[in-house]
Design a protein around this nucleic acid. Structure first.
Lengths: 413, 413
DNA sequence: CTCTATTTTTTCGAGCCTCGAAAAAATACT
DNA sequence: AGTATTTTTTCGAGGCTCGAAAAAATAGAG
């Protein structure tokens, strides 16, 4: 049952709001913050004075340009980079990376590592993650006295509480409670996030104009993943990270999917499916890993001549289009960002995709739906992961008061 | 931009919380309310004393049973029926009904009327709605000095702000701003709600145990509609009422749907589709209205012998199953309530439905998904509509302070 | 029938928090 | 140097919730 509002929640929430305003705006003056939050100048003054005293915010010198106005000049507030630091760990197929980010969002250290995730044992996989974090923590070059949070983004399904990976295509292992493991090991609060959700978070920070309250981030890679933001909040399933767009059913009983079922969107639009179709293999052929270079070659061939390669992309577009159509029936049309290696081949995908959408409930808005492409998913995931960790710090550490739910319907912020 | 919390919001929210607690619990004592809301006894005492003074709540005599305890007996609080009244208008195919409900939720007047919605002009349709409301307002038998709100539930798509019907299968007319029309006519705040959403609201009130934070209400009738509650809030699209489950694509390019497109779930599971298949008509045959009695006869025949009728229900089950599977891929499995005349034939639908779900991402939980059936949708819609109107009154009139959004992500409450 | 134990509800003062108004600070213009 | 203008801080007022204590209302014991 939703709980009443206590008196002290007030300050907590308003502190969080001020911090969020600073994080979004960069160097807002107190007056600006008062305007965006709707709180009075006195309140903003009091709160920001507290936050500065606590070393969370800092005053930044005159806001460069526009200082040609009369009157007392505005003094910009900014995040104090030294207030804290967070760690963003990204675990994807055969690849593990970690970045240390200061409170203002600057990367201050990184490490990347190739692994053979598909064949590693459970212990080895966990061990590598723990080890890479430990190395960053113990790095003598870096004075990271205060890592306030760790966020681990992983390709695959996580639970709603952002505590564990439930299933992932990058490893046969299931149900690894990474959050608990990292917290036990380092005593630092940790969460486990879905990679596509982090893409969505990053897009929202990168381009708040375009990606605000409602949009879709689609990962077109080996598998098909989705990060969905609805009404300004990251959408998650009731038990898991949800949003398994790739496993909506495109054709009942159709092509064999990597998940073992048949007819999923991914079984037509995943890299392995495009590959399978381009080589005129059976739709039942076992999914194989295709590296990015091969996919690019495939796309080039499809552009050259109207052969099976082009047809394979057409089928992918069709599957994605019908899938989006069904999704739009549920949530109404929204802007889409295509991310991943096959997003670079979106020119090959788009015609069939638009044609398919036109056959669906999304049809009437078919023209108005915008698609954006971004071939490289990793930077997005890393960025989103960092922002997620930072906003956790904003909300829980620097505006404390109540236990906060981890993943769920929180604002993407 | 989400706005800061002002000091006076506090009281407003906590008042709303107390009212909500009373509406949910029936006759809770102040102590119980303190427990469920987490607020202190003093606060609850102050607020409820205010509310009683304003005539919103009333004291009800000793809470009957369980009064065998020592100590000062609890005195139950209840809603004062005379605090206000609301009107629930339900517009469905060829049928218009209105009910006046007092603040405690009791129906105090009703009127129902047959119309030929399919052929009526825009003016006539609006006119009938206005007239039926006016008749109730002017009823001399009824001392309805204070209708605080009107909620109109309509089969079809409404906008997110609950101001207008955008499209409906019951009439060729589109974009009727019923809320504005009613408000202009009577000066009473009004909203327009989707019928299936109201079913979901009603289910939540009827059986809060089963239908709490996440569930699906599916209307199996002429068309297929859905009301979806996720994380305790009614799910709506970004522009419209959304949740058009019936128009997710089951088979690309498949059977002709009433919406003019092909392969929608509804084109296999709507009454007209079942009828079409049972009579071995073409999948392209123009959808026709089938009345409930004919559908019941059809179901009886399907139960008798394994002919085309049974096959028609099997196909319906398959379409619903794959549709639910795709939905579950997005939101994870959740309890389902089947409502409407074809819910009475769920025995014929279930086997194929479960088989289909087993082929999808919902498959692993196939066994654990519960289905409930309720053949009659109208009472549910009326009930949900009334509760929606009442909770608006609770939140906006009796706990005022801020302009509140109409439809959106509010708690179903 | 009176007294005591028990439970619910109200009362009261303390402590916060936000707000508006006024004051202070810091600059541009004259 | 003085004035106008804009931003930020200060200060007192008013509200709200909370905890503790008091008051109210009953059941059981003797």
């Amino acid at each position: 049952m939703s709980v009443g509002i206590r008196h002290d929640d007030l300050r907590r929430r308003n502190r969080a709001m001020v911090i969020a305003a600073v994080r979004r705006a960069g160097q807002p003056s107190r007056t600006e913050i008062a305007a965006t939050t709707g709180l009075s100048h006195s309140t903003i003054s009091a709160i920001s004075s507290d936050l500065i005293g606590e070393g969370i915010l800092a005053q930044s010198k005159p806001s460069e340009a526009g200082a040609l106005k009369r009157g007392r000049p505005q003094v910009g507030l900014c995040l104090n980079p030294e207030a804290a630091a967070v760690m963003a760990v990204v675990l994807s197929l055969n690849f593990l990376s970690v970045a240390v980010i200061d409170y203002a969002g600057q990367v201050i250290a990184e490490e990347q590592r190739r692994l053979d995730t598909l064949t590693m044992s459970r212990e080895a996989l966990i061990g590598e993650c723990v080890a890479i974090v430990r190395r960053r923590l113990e790095d003598p070059d870096l004075d990271v006295r205060s890592i306030a949070r760790i966020a681990l983004a992983i390709q695959g399904i996580t639970d709603t509480e952002a505590r564990a990976m439930l299933w992932s295509p990058i490893t046969p292992q299931t149900d690894i409670a990474f959050a608990d493991i990292l917290e036990a090991e380092f005593g630092i609060p940790a969460t486990v996030e879905n990679d596509c959700n982090m893409m969505a978070v990053a897009l929202r920070w990168r381009d708040p104009q375009r990606y605000r309250d409602d949009f879709i981030a689609l990962l077109l890679s080996h598998g098909i993943g989705m990060g969905l933001v609805l009404k300004g909040a990251l959408f998650t399933g009731t038990h898991s990270s949800g949003g398994e767009f790739g496993h909506m059913i495109h054709r009942p009983g159709g092509a064999l999917c990597r998940c073992g079922r048949r007819g999923c969107v991914e079984a037509y639009a995943g890299n392995y499916a495009i590959w399978r179709n381009a080589r005129m293999m059976s739709e039942d052929a076992e999914p194989v890993d295709v590296n990015d270079a091969d996919m690019r070659t495939l796309a080039a061939r499809a552009r050259e001549s109207d052969g099976p390669e082009r047809e394979a992309y057409r089928k992918a577009g069709e599957a994605l289009g019908y899938g989006l159509g069904s999704l739009f029936a549920l949530i109404d049309p929204a802007p889409v960002a295509m991310v991943g290696v096959s997003a670079a081949a979106f020119d090959l995908i788009e015609p069939a995709l638009r044609e398919a959408i036109a056959q669906t409930a999304g049809g009437q808005h078919s023209k108005s739906i915008s698609f954006d492409t971004e071939p490289n998913e990793l930077p997005l995931i890393r960025e989103g992961c960092a922002m997620r960790a930072l906003t956790f710090v904003d909300q829980e550490i620097f505006a404390p008061g109540v236990q906060a739910k981890a993943g769920a319907g929180k604002n993407v912020a």
